[in-house]
Amino acid sequence: MSKLLDVRDLHVSFTTYNGEVKAVRGVNFYVNKGETVAIVGESGCGKSVTSQTIMRLIPQPPGIIRHGEIHFADRDLVKVSDKQMEKIRGSELAMIFQDPMTSLNPTMTVGRQITESLIKHQKLGSSKARQKAIELLRMVGIPSPESRAKQYPHQFSGGMRQRAMIAIALSCRPKLLIADEPTTALDVTIQAQIIDLMKRLQEKFGTSIILITHDLGVVADIADRVVVMYAGIVVETGTLHEVFFNPHHPYTWGLMASMPRLDLHHEQELLPISGSPPDLISPPKGCPFAARCRHAMKVCTEYMPEMTDLSSTHQVACWLEHPMAPKANKHTGRNGGEADE
């Protein structure tokens, strides 16, 4: 398989009154053609900043791309001019956002918002574009698309707005779709509809997807590979099965153990990760998870762990992988750590 997107050593910062917030601190990952890569992590871990940097939607200033390369279809997106980027954005790269209410223009009909990019990128005439828009709305499962295309976003329900967003994003058949928490704002039954739709469309068009989410349930449902981020760095990456059934980073264990599951018994305790993520204005010099990690050693607070290869697809950044490290109780999925206190 060939790499469609390859992000190498990306550093992104924001200047604020309090100092420089180092939101992304050396992120590496890639996306192959036709696959779905999920980026998981808590708020503030840099997952959204990474995706917005790929789209070049980071306002500069205050944002600065300090370092790194983003290779996408033989170009480095960090270096291309704004004008070129405008051409790529919408036609080859597309994005859907968490909140479909604030990401659609309330003063334009839904139909016009879809035709906008068709006219701009595919140079379609307005009547042809309108036909295509109606077709797209039908494809994403909006009933009576002819009349719906003339309506405004406020006349749509949350699930339908997200469908309309997907229609806009897919209008020019992008190679890569970035979905930033596409289902977080939706109810479970609607969430299931949207995930189902995304899967179907991916099969049909072979689009690669970067899915950004904190919901491991959604990840298990749709992803091929998983990238786990914490405090601006990638702590673990691997195929879906490697990360879910053989997680190696204590943070990944923690995430798995702190989530309630339907098959979890009432008497079993949830194992929370104590504490909260570090401040990224002055991030710790060692492993950022050390302060919350049950297995932290002296070396963890002093030096950043290197990425260790566990297989050709599975990498983890943790000192426990070092040959001299003590054997921690791992590989045990949900009972990964001892109970807190």
Partner: peptide, 22 residues
């Protein structure tokens, strides 16, 4: 059936009832 299960195998095996409409 719509609740996502954080387990890839269980998630692929089960049959989901996807409700239509809003």
């Amino acid at each position: 059936s719509a609740v996502p299960i954080p387990d890839p195998d269980a998630s692929k095996k089960r049959e989901r009832i996807i409700l239509e409409g809003d």
